[in-house]
Lab assay of single mutants.
Amino acid sequence: MDETGKELVLALYDYQEKSPREVTMKKGDILTLLNSTNKDSWKVEVKITVNGKTYERQGFVPAAYVKKL
């Protein structure tokens, strides 16, 4: 869990989004878990840094590609 009590997951593999509802992640990324009720895909939040500014983006990733921490 992070400092706000949200559950975290670790990306086990790289994943490139295939639709606007998904998010891209790299192996080793730590993501905030938002919903894990679907056995196939979990909703997560990723933090992306562009030019020194951090943005948050929500979307789905394959459940088999992440592990709860």
Rank of each mutant, 00 (worst) to 15 (best):
E3S: 14
M1K: 13
L34Q: 01
T24H: 03
K26F: 08
W42M: 01
G59L: 06
L12A: 02
V66Y: 01
T24G: 08
Y15M: 01
S36L: 04
T49C: 15
Y55L: 09
N35V: 07
E7M: 11
N35M: 07
F60N: 05
P20Y: 08
Y13F: 12
A64L: 10
R21Y: 14
A11M: 03
E45N: 08
K53V: 14
T54M: 09
V50I: 13
K43N: 05
D40I: 12
K18Y: 05
E3Y: 13
K27H: 04
E56H: 15
G59P: 01
Y15L: 01
L69V: 11
Y13C: 15
F60L: 06
Y65A: 12
V44M: 01
Y13L: 09
S19N: 14
E56C: 15
S36K: 06
M25Y: 02
V46P: 00
G52D: 06
E17Q: 13
A11F: 03
K26V: 08
D40Q: 09
K39L: 08
D2K: 14
P20F: 07
K67I: 15
T54A: 08
I30M: 05
L8P: 03
V50H: 10
K68W: 06
K67A: 11
T37D: 15
V9F: 03
E3M: 14
L10S: 04
T24S: 15
A11V: 10
I48K: 07
E56Y: 15
E7C: 15
V23I: 14
L10H: 03
R57C: 09
Y65R: 04
V23A: 03
R57E: 03
D2C: 15
E22M: 03
V61E: 00
D29I: 05
D40R: 10
R21H: 15
G5Y: 13
D40L: 11
L12R: 02
Q58M: 07
L34A: 01
I48H: 09
E56I: 15
K39T: 11
K39W: 07
L31E: 01
K27Q: 08
G28P: 00
T54G: 05
L33W: 02
W42V: 05
A63N: 02
D14N: 07
K26E: 04
T4E: 13
V61Y: 02
K26Q: 08
K39V: 10
I48T: 08
Q16R: 11
R21K: 12
V61T: 00
E45L: 15
V9K: 00
T24Q: 04
P62I: 07
L33S: 04
G59F: 08
K26H: 10
T49A: 07
I30H: 02
Y13I: 08
L8E: 07
T24I: 03
L33V: 05
T54I: 12
E7P: 09
D2Y: 13
P20N: 10
P62E: 04
K68T: 07
L10Q: 11
L69M: 09
Q58W: 07
F60G: 00
R21I: 14
A64Y: 08
V46F: 07
V61I: 08
E45V: 14
E45G: 13
T4F: 12
S19V: 05
V61S: 00
Y15D: 00
D14K: 03
K53H: 12
L10T: 05
P20E: 13
V50A: 10
A11Y: 03
G28K: 02
K67W: 06
E3N: 14
V61R: 02
L12G: 00
S41H: 15
A63T: 05
L12D: 01
K39H: 10
A63C: 08
K6D: 08
Y65C: 15
N51T: 04
T37Q: 11
T54E: 09
I48E: 06
E7L: 11
M1T: 13
V46Y: 09
L69F: 09
V66Q: 01
P20Q: 09
D14I: 06
S41N: 11
G28S: 01
M25I: 15
R57S: 05
T37C: 14
V66P: 02
Y65W: 05
A63Y: 03
R57L: 07
K67T: 12
G5H: 12
L31F: 05
E17C: 13
E56M: 15
M25N: 01
P62Y: 04
L8V: 07
R21D: 15
S41R: 14
I30N: 01
L33K: 02
F60Y: 15
G5R: 14
A11D: 02
V61H: 01
K43R: 09
D2Q: 14
A63R: 08
I30P: 00
N35T: 06
D2S: 14
V23H: 01
G5Q: 13
V9S: 00
K27T: 06
V46K: 12
E3L: 12
V46T: 09
V9C: 14
P62Q: 05
D2M: 14
S41A: 11
S19A: 08
S41K: 11
L34H: 02
K47E: 07
M25L: 11
K67G: 07
E3A: 14
V44D: 00
D40A: 08
V61W: 03
E45I: 14
R57W: 06
N38T: 06
Y15S: 01
Y55Q: 09
K18W: 04
Q58K: 07
S41E: 15
L34N: 02
K68F: 08
G5D: 13
N35Q: 09
D14R: 00
D29G: 01
S36Q: 09
L34S: 00
T32E: 07
S36C: 14
L69T: 05
Q16E: 14
L34D: 00
K18M: 10
S19F: 08
E22G: 14
E3C: 15
Y15C: 07
G59V: 05
K27P: 01
N35F: 05
K67E: 12
W42G: 00
L12C: 12
N35P: 03
M1F: 13
L8N: 05
N51F: 07
N51D: 13
V23S: 03
S36P: 06
E56Q: 14
